[in-house]
């Protein structure tokens, strides 16, 4: 992980870097508040180039049918739910670190996306979305007459 980049300094987002550092430390030492108790859930990684964006979310233990994804222009919304797995009669938690409940998160994407061609894939607790840029939002070259 790059905490400080020689060429970029702390980059354009020093607090983002700090936040990532904090999360990393928490995960290493196992004291992370984790699922649902993090400040924002789910944690997302967003990649893009001029033609598409890729969003990945860590949502372990959530059933495919309990995930709801929607896109409107340049806003992506992910909703979901994880069962509490509550112990029944004669059972008890000896350790309880994993969270549960409902979540909803909306993020802004760098451009408007074509909602018809969004693909979603859920594998090993990671949701991966591929969001192609909408034709109308692609830059157009203007000829000088």
């Amino acid at each position: 992980m790059v905490i400080w980049d020689r060429d970029r300094g702390f980059g354009s987002d020093p607090f983002g870097e700090l936040e990532r550092f904090r999360r990393r430390m928490n995960r290493i030492f196992g004291v992370s508040p984790g699922f649902m108790t993090q400040d924002v859930f789910p944690p997302l990684n967003v990649w893009s180039d001029s033609g598409k964006a890729v969003v990945k979310a860590e949502v372990p233990g959530i059933k495919k049918e309990d995930l709801e994804i929607s896109v409107e222009n340049d806003v992506l919304t992910i909703k979901g739910h994880r069962e509490p797995g509550k112990p029944g009669g004669g059972e008890c938690f000896r350790r309880h670190e994993r969270g549960h409940g409902s979540f909803r998160r909306a993020i802004g994407l760098p451009f408007s996306v074509d909602p018809e061609n969004v693909t979603a894939d859920y594998c090993n607790g990671i949701l991966r979305l591929e969001l192609p840029r909408h034709e109308t939002s692609k830059p157009k070259k203007i000829e000088v007459g």
């Binding site: 995960r27 290493i28 196992g30 984790g34 350790r95 994993r98 090993n124 607790g125």
Partner: peptide, 27 residues
């Protein structure tokens, strides 16, 4: 090494101990 500690639940059931660990991305 640089590894993460998964979050776990340990549940004592009548006839077994159940451990649940969140390990997203692991097949």
């Amino acid at each position: 090494e640089a590894s993460f500690a998964p979050q776990v639940d340990v549940i004592e059931k009548r006839d077994c101990i159940q451990i649940l660990a969140d390990m997203p991305g692991v097949s």
